[in-house]
């Protein structure tokens, strides 16, 4: 009883740490990606992530791509007069020295035309294209349909 527990305790933080490592390209740090499990393949999956721009030049996320989605798009949830809509975001600003979070109820990636259902515990790669910073690919863990936030802390 004691030994497996100890083993798990030793193993877990190390594994979590490895998965939670931010992907750094130039001045951009991409961290805490996550998605929710989908029911079947016909519904869109969602993509959330945190992007920090530590440089002195503004950047913008202009596109996302993933082998699991035929039609990935950037969207923003806007609630106006109590009505929620999801306009397509042509690009998402990542100003110099600031952190932009794609998060529930705000900017998010919408992955349509999925190749298959995304199950909890799976992961898939997403490539983020930035106006100046080039492309960044990160592995996105699929969390429960009921998840509220990333399991990994966002990079500072």
């Amino acid at each position: 009883m004691f030994k497996p527990l100890l083993f798990t305790a030793l193993l877990l933080p190390a594994a979590a740490f490895a998965e939670c490592e931010p992907v750094v390209v130039g001045d951009l740090s991409v961290s805490a990606p996550w998605s929710r499990a989908t029911i079947g393949a016909s519904r869109p999956a969602v993509f959330y992530v945190t992007i920090t721009n530590s440089g002195s030049e503004d950047d913008a996320l202009t596109n996302i791509a993933s082998p699991v989605a035929g039609m990935p798009m950037l969207h923003e949830t806007v609630v106006k007069d109590g009505i929620a809509s999801m306009p397509h975001a042509m690009s998402i600003p990542v100003p110099a020295g600031e952190t932009m979070r794609l998060a529930p109820g705000s900017y998010h990636g919408m992955l349509m035309d999925l190749t298959g259902a995304q199950k909890e515990g799976d992961s898939f790669p997403v490539t983020l294209s930035f106006q100046n910073g080039g492309d960044v690919t990160i592995d996105v863990p699929v969390l429960s349909l009921r998840a509220e936030e990333a399991e990994c802390a966002a990079a500072p």
Partner: peptide, 11 residues
Amino acid sequence: WCPDVCPTTLV
């Protein structure tokens, strides 16, 4: 089919 608002509301 709502990816963001509805699961967030349910949670």
